[in-house]
Simulated assay, not measured.
Amino acid sequence: MHISIAGAGIAGLASAIALSQNGHSVSVFEQAARLEAIGAGLQLGPNAVRVLENLGVWSELEAQCCAPDRIRICDAISGRQLSELDLGDSFTRKFGSPYRVAHRADLINALAQSASRIADITIVNDCRITGLEPGASTCVKTLSGEAHETDLVVAADGIRSQLRAHIGLENQPRLSGETLYRALAPASDLPAGLDPDAVYLWLAPGAHVVHYRVSGGRRLNIVASIEQPADQTGWNNIASRGDVLAALPGAASALRDLLSAPASWLAWTGADLDPFTSWSRDNCVLVGDAAHASLPYLAQGAAMALEDAECLAACIGDGSGDLTAALVRYESRRQPRTARIIEESRRNAGIYHMRGPKAQARNLALRFMPGSMQMQRLAWIYASPPDNGSPR
């Protein structure tokens, strides 16, 4: 088959690679003039690493990742550590692949470099798909007036997908009531006394902060989520150090020093999608954030996009079977898992941002619950989905 993909982000590029491994020719249409490497850092759990290994991308990315030894959960006001979760050898043995962190730019670059070496993949930049005309084969129309015949359209065009309306889904993103701030700083700016080999999660009333090293350990990725309603479009709204510090009054000195380090910040509005019951229509199917955008509070957005790509390719196979049935299989395998990710991410927002007695009870539970028990609660995420297909 010839397959057209809208969007050259994580979901689009991974889908192109996975589908090409089954012998399909793939055209990826990206509306930007060049592949953009915007976005914050990414936590790549074993489920994400496993797919990257299967796609042949991991060797391209691994050197740019960092290997944290642990997750440290701390009270943002007192500075006290509440819990520590081990990410070392025992974690890797348990789940079969390691836990790594990376910058989104490095993952996009690794996917793009891998795709560029595959003869059956063509990436077309500065080309936006504006419409579809279904038939025996689908006609893809672009903003420049061109038309392309294709057997399948994969909509990987993000949370504000333009192609979602073709499926009959017009849901707008649900705003979460939070503003997220992100920044990069030199790794040397990590305040003394903080562990450079850890992922940190700081919990505050109405807010939380996550930070860890990326880009081979050269840079520090910092994200602060604040209960601060906004409706900003895009990922690159300019913010200031003062905006972030003002949103976290009373922060412990180490955390305040950390937030003071970056020279500039960018902001975006927290949003997700309510789960859909159908992801396909005619010869068009949704993947990644276009299908199931979630809040980043389980750190699974990139992983779910990668899993989608692998599952879609496994369901379609070499294309000799019934395509409609293959797309239904893909939906039925992926929808329950991604819906649970959306639900649990929303739940985590409420837990992270607790105030008063609820926060005190949460902190007490974290202090006395073994890290191994906390990690076990995430096993359903990190274990390989039983129905996601097998490596090709």
Rank of each mutant, 00 (worst) to 15 (best):
P357I: 15
H353M: 03
R329P: 01
R355Q: 08
H353Y: 01
Y352C: 05
Q376D: 05
K358A: 15
R340I: 10
P336M: 13
Y382N: 11
R355T: 14
Y330L: 11
N348Q: 07
Q376E: 13
R340D: 11
R334K: 12
Q335V: 12
A349C: 13
Q374S: 12
I381Y: 05
R346V: 00
R333W: 07
R346H: 06
W380M: 13
L366D: 00
R346S: 03
A379D: 11
R329K: 15
I342H: 00
R355G: 09
A365K: 05
A349M: 09
A349R: 07
M375N: 07
E343S: 09
Q374G: 11
E343D: 05
R346G: 06
I381C: 10
R355D: 00
P357R: 07
R377C: 06
R329A: 14
S345E: 04
G350W: 02
V328W: 06
N363L: 01
Q360F: 10
R346K: 06
Q376F: 00
Q335A: 15
A349T: 12
G356W: 02
I342D: 05
M354R: 02
G371H: 01
P370N: 02
I351N: 00
M369S: 15
M375W: 03
R347G: 13
R337Q: 07
R362W: 02
S345H: 01
I341W: 06
R377Y: 02
P357S: 15
I351S: 11
I381P: 01
P336Y: 06
F368P: 04
R329C: 12
P336K: 07
L366T: 01
R346C: 15
M373L: 15
G350S: 12
L364N: 02
R337N: 08
M375G: 06
K358R: 02
H353N: 02
E331R: 09
Q376Y: 01
Q374C: 12
R367F: 05
A365H: 01
N348G: 07
P357Q: 01
P357A: 15
S345L: 00
R329M: 03
R329S: 13
Q376R: 12
G350Q: 08
I351K: 04
R355C: 11
S332G: 11
S332A: 15
E344K: 14
I381H: 00
A365M: 13
A359N: 00
R337D: 07
W380Q: 06
E344L: 14
G350V: 08
M354C: 10
G356Q: 04
P357G: 11
R340G: 02
K358W: 04
G356N: 10
P336R: 00
Q374P: 01
M375Y: 09
T338V: 14
Q374A: 14
L364S: 11
Q335W: 00
N363H: 10
N348H: 09
